[in-house]
Structures are given as structure tokens and as C-alpha cells.
Design a protein around this nucleic acid. Sequence first.
DNA 1: GCCCGCGTTCCGGTGTGCGGAACGCTGCTG
DNA 2: CAGCAGCGTTCCGCACACCGGAACGCGGGC
Lengths: 272, 272
Amino acid sequence: MTVLSLPPLDLDAAGGVGEEDSPLRSVATAVAVLDCFADEAELGATRVATRLGIAKSTACRMLAALATGGLLERTGSGRYRLGLRLFEYGQLAVDRLMLRDVALPAMGELRELLRETIQLGVVVGTDVLYVERAEAATMNVRFRSEHRRNPAHSSSAGRVLAAADPALVTAILERGLQRYTPFTVVDPLRYRQILASTREQGYATAREEFEPGWSSIAAPITLTRGGRPHPVAALSVVAPTSRILGPRKPAVVQGVRRAAARVSADLERARS
Amino acid sequence: MTVLSLPPLDLDAAGGVGEEDSPLRSVATAVAVLDCFADEAELGATRVATRLGIAKSTACRMLAALATGGLLERTGSGRYRLGLRLFEYGQLAVDRLMLRDVALPAMGELRELLRETIQLGVVVGTDVLYVERAEAATMNVRFRSEHRRNPAHSSSAGRVLAAADPALVTAILERGLQRYTPFTVVDPLRYRQILASTREQGYATAREEFEPGWSSIAAPITLTRGGRPHPVAALSVVAPTSRILGPRKPAVVQGVRRAAARVSADLERARS
DNA sequence: GCCCGCGTTCCGGTGTGCGGAACGCTGCTG
DNA sequence: CAGCAGCGTTCCGCACACCGGAACGCGGGC
């Protein structure tokens, strides 16, 4: 089994529902129906039909079929909601990367060492998706679903992953460096400079570039492929700025780099 | 928005792939294709075709359609694997229960108090599915995907949930009390006695009934519906037997009951 | 370099999913 | 209390999109 062959960054997946010209029209619309539930928690047949521009009867059949398959569940009032089977599939998808299990011990130790929240992120499209998180001592309700994915250019994890992947860099630049805070780096030239220094130093930082007050430091988890180490994921420490970019910064950098290196080694050994 | 209306325990979902007589045949087979990946990490068109008894060309089209939808990803050698989009959908499905976010703080505090692993479980079919886990101090690699779901009859969480749900009890008994360890309760009469005492005491225990050496204590998270409190989830402490069923048992019971009661109250308030 | 196995593509017939309209139902509202 | 409006669901006939079999291109392996 190949260990975590990085998905070839499907750019089209970033867009909206759109009209797929693929075969299996009904399956494509079924997936589009699922996508509708990314925005809203509960949907009925009429909403789905109008959103997708299909007949109401078609939407109803799609919803029923997805519900019998377990991908959707019926709420009391005839509407539908994402099903828990999707949770199981999603956990399996992450487990199959053979990354989380390898990284968990190191993440727990790093959390204990720094007493901060540790994140494990991979690239999907031009975003970083966090597939595991070791919360600081008291589990922080601040980290919710909306913090499970963020644009690669404004996060330290995205930088260590882009630093070694020119195709990802061009994809990020094509999409545009959107500004989220006054500190967000939006100049392509400056962004490339940051990536260059990331390559040199072996870690990346992001100072309040996505959410005011919160910064992060990340180091790459690599896998030697074709003789050269290739980043496949990133370990990042996220905390209020003063706690990791102040006097503690050297300790945090050393800690996250060591943890990422250990995960890389374990991942290499797990490649049986 | 209704908060966590318990899914009506789809019994058929427990079975294998099977032939659905529902409309939208292609969507049904697409779901069946997804189900194939519950067992194996990577699959090609031929394997899928033989497993489902469909033509190889059909399987190929299904795989391609699911891949363009992001539910599957292509691995290097033309085979397929569950896609990370499923992870996002799955996280959304759990978030929409408005249960995890409410329970996280209490779980973190209980973990700190007991220094043991805390699990948050819900019922799906006749199994308990754990949708969140607060690991003990060092994140334990022992808890992996195979520990994300287990039969309701052999877990403490399943008992507090079955204690107030006669329909679930009959479903569990119909399925049969499978033996996993020498301690597993497999006598229906004894099982009903245990449920009765669970109702009285307000918590449940399971002593090495699923995995030798590991036991658990659970308390119900309830939501008043129709004037009466109704369990919708369970908080459980899982640890080596001596650490929770020995002298510490009273403290553990009190801790998990208090935490579950707090989550219940918060959940009630969140029902705006 | 041969062969076997894979994933993919092509093509025609047919059965299946599409859309529009009609049906119960619930929960508003005048 | 009755009317209505909106919902999810069902029915039905036509068209077309999907299924299966066979052919293609490619890669790995005794």
C-alpha cells in the first residue's frame, strides 16, 4: 500500500456546484445534492430543487436515495440532514492516509510540552485541511468547524507545504491572496520571499494573518520519494500571538520541528 | 432548528451492501461502491465490479463520477481511495448535531479531573458511534478507527442509551448478544437486569466486555422532549479496569455523571 | 518481449430517470 | 374555524442516459 500519495490538488473541487460534463448524470447530481448541505444544516426537496435548477420530483428522489444509502438522514419534519455514515467514511478517509495514527503520539507530547493547541494539516486544493487537533489543556470551544479549513496562503502550515510544491504556489497565486486581516500577506512577491525563507529555515510562521490575535508556527512532515524528502503534511502550533511569537518562539520552533521530524521518521518506517 | 432528533435507528443500515429496491438505481449502486471502501483502503474497477456483481465498465464509470465529485480520490496506480471531502462532510454531520461543541469543554475538564480518556457516543443502528474523544494526557495510539464504533450491548455507553429506549433494546436483542470476551454479557435476561439497574442508578458500567483489560463507565446526556428527559448521547470514561472499577470507581462515577448533567443542561440551553 | 491483468473507451438497445401535474398533509392566517 | 399556501411525495409517459459486452492501451511479472 502506498502511504499517503498526495492528491493532485483538484482545483475544480474548489469551485461551486457547477455543471459536470462527466458521465453518470444522476450520480453527479447526487453529489451536487450533498454539496448543498455544506452550507445549510437542513434542507427540503424544494430548496434543493431550486438551488440546483432541477425538478422538485428529481430532488425528492435524490434525497430519498441518499437517505436509504445512509449519506443523509431524515429530520422529523420531512427535511434532510447529513448522515453519520459520512462521519465514518470521513474518519476512514483520514485513517487511510496512515498519517494521523503515526502523528498522534507526537502531537500529544508536543501539546504537553508547549501547553498549546497542535494541528495536523494536509493540502486539499488551495486550502489546508486540519485532520487532527490536540487541544490545549482545556479543550477550547473556539476551534469549531469553521476553523477546520483555511486558505493555504494565510497559514503557516500552508507555507511549509507550498514551499516545496511549485504547482501549489501557482495555484494559490492564481486564486489570489485574499486579505483577512491587516497583517495578511497579499503581495505575491513578498509571499514568494516568505516561501524562500521558509525553505531555508525549515519552518514557517503566520502572524495574525487569518484571525486577529492568533498566530501559528508550522514545520513540515516529509516522506522521501524519489530520493528527496517531500512534504505531505504539516504540524502547526496555534496560539495567541504573544505566547508563541514572543520570547518563547525559539522553544516553540524547536519543539514543532522536532515533533515533525519524529513523525516523518515514524511515517517512513510505517511505509512497509 | 431541532437539536439532535435521534435518527430512528435504521436497522437495515447494519447489514451488508444488498440490493436496494429503491428508485435511482445508479445512485444506489454509487453508494454501494462507496461501501466497498469501508473494508479495503484501495480498490480498482475490477474488484468493485466483482464485489457488486456489476459490469466492469459500470464500476469504472461509478468510480470516475465519485472521484470528480470528490468523494473518492485517485491513487497513483489508477485505483481509488476515500476522498478527504468525506472527512469534511462527516465533520459537518457531527457539528450539525450541536452536540460536540457543547460537550467539548466538559469533556476536557473531565479528562483533566480523571486523567483518563473520555468518549462521546451516539447510537447508530445497534452500535455506539463515538463522535469525539478527549484522550488522556499522552494521546493514546491504541484508539484507532476500529475503536470508533462498537456494539451497543457490550459498552457502557450503549447501556445508558438502551436503558431508556425499548425499541433499541429489542433491536439489540434481535441482532443477538455476541460474545467478545469471557466477560461479555450474552444472556438476554441478565442484559435486561443490567439495563434495569442502569435505569435506577443513572449510570452504566462494562467490565472488560469488549476488549480484555479495558472497562468503561458511562452516563447519559439527556434532552427533555415531551416533558420527559430522553437520552440522546452518552459520556463514557474508558481505561484499564483497575483504574476505574477499583477504589476510584465512586469518584469516576460522580465525575462522569456531573459532566453529563452539565452537558445536558448546556444542550438544553442551546436549544434556542 | 511476451502475456496476462488492469483501467478505460466505444457502441447500441433498453430500461430508467427526468419533468410536469396531481395528491395529502401540515401549519399558518384571516 | 376554514381557507390557503407551501411543503414532501407520488404518478406517468417520453426520451435519453445508463448498462453490459467487446475492443483498446498500457503496465508489471514470471
